[in-house]
């Protein structure tokens, strides 16, 4: 890592990690795209944390009668502008949905729901991947073969399909949704961690640790995993976006606990039946998903550039 930036190799030797951090900040400043990624992802997490303060978290259950009437009144001239302005465009900047709720408020309420599921899925997948993938790569032999074959079974089913089956069987709720997506996600992390450990365990320092009498657990989870986890963390950052895409796709097709639930895919789902009369219902929630997932993808790309010296050139 250090050899590839000769102009800094002196200071890097002296200051170690601090120099690396400085270099990362330098890359950030030089690369506006990565900066955009950092900004978007930090902003979306902040928005998610602050969302209950901005919008009354129970307001998703309230359906203002006058707006519902405006939406469902056949006498109202059914034109885009009329429906959009049901409650007055100054009060509802993104329009109202078919339940008469402010779409902007619903999107703000939905962001933490999606992000929470995404973080839960990715964090659990990383933990499972580190544990089983590390075990498979380090032990080799029959342990490796057994773990690999189990991942084979899960990888042979298209993720969305497996998730649909799981949601049908386990019932429709947010925890089920999380479990269903996690079930389709963990095998990739096991594979990734395994391949990392396979190349890392041949390095001389592992031999040295073994000669010093370190136990397998300490060598694997104390040293090898620490040194080979960066690609996994990069993948995890990239996957936050993908998990949000998958979750919202599942809720979009209607696999939700409640059609009223503020969740980005679910909000878009009620838009599909009004796609030509009220296109904002699907446009804005989808755009939110796009921006958030783009943010995490840019962030992951940037982190990869920082940690992968081969891409620095």
């Amino acid at each position: 890592m250090k050899a590839s930036k000769p102009e800094e190799s002196q200071s890097s030797d002296r200051y170690g990690r601090r120099a690396d951090l400085k270099y990362a900040l330098h890359l950030l400043r030089r690369n506006p795209i990565v900066l955009a990624g950092v900004t978007i992802s930090v902003a979306s997490v902040l928005l998610a944390l602050l969302s209950p303060l901005i919008v009354n978290p129970t307001s998703w259950d309230q359906q203002p009668l006058n707006l519902r009437l405006c939406w469902n009144n056949p006498i109202v001239n059914w034109q885009i502008a009329n429906v959009f302005n049901c409650g007055g465009s100054a009060v509802y900047p993104l329009g109202t949905d078919s339940y008469g709720r402010s779409l902007l408020q619903m999107i703000i309420l939905a962001i933490p729901v999606d992000l929470e599921i995404a973080f839960e899925v990715v964090a659990s997948a990383v933990v499972i991947g580190v544990f089983f993938g590390g075990l498979a790569g380090y032990k080799g032999g029959i342990v490796d073969e057994a773990i690999l074959r189990v991942t084979d079974v899960f990888l042979a089913i298209p993720g969305i399909l497996l998730a649909i089956v799981l949601i049908v069987v386990l019932g429709r709720s947010l925890p089920t949704l999380t479990i269903a997506v996690l079930t389709t996600w963990w095998p990739y992390y096991v594979r990734l961690m395994r391949s990392q450990v396979l190349s890392e365990k041949e390095k001389p320092y592992v031999e040295r640790l073994r000669a010093m009498g370190a136990g397998d657990v300490r060598i694997l989870y104390g040293h090898i995993v620490q040194n080979s986890i960066y690609p996994v963390l990069v993948q995890a950052t990239l996957d936050i976006g993908s998990v949000i895409l998958t979750v919202s796709a599942l809720t979009f097709i209607g696999l939700t606990p409640s059609p009223l639930l503020p969740e980005l895919g679910n909000l878009a789902n009620q838009g599909i039946q009004y796609i030509f009369t009220a296109p904002w219902l699907i446009l804005f929630p989808g755009l939110t998903i796009l921006i958030i997932s783009l943010g995490f993808n840019l962030l992951g790309d940037g982190i990869r550039d920082v940690f992968d010296p081969r891409l620095r050139r």
Binding site: L245, I253, L287, L290
Partner: peptide, 10 residues
């Protein structure tokens, strides 16, 4: 990578 397929289609 980032675009929701259902949204793109819509």
């Amino acid at each position: 990578y980032s675009i929701p397929q259902f949204w793109f289609g819509a």
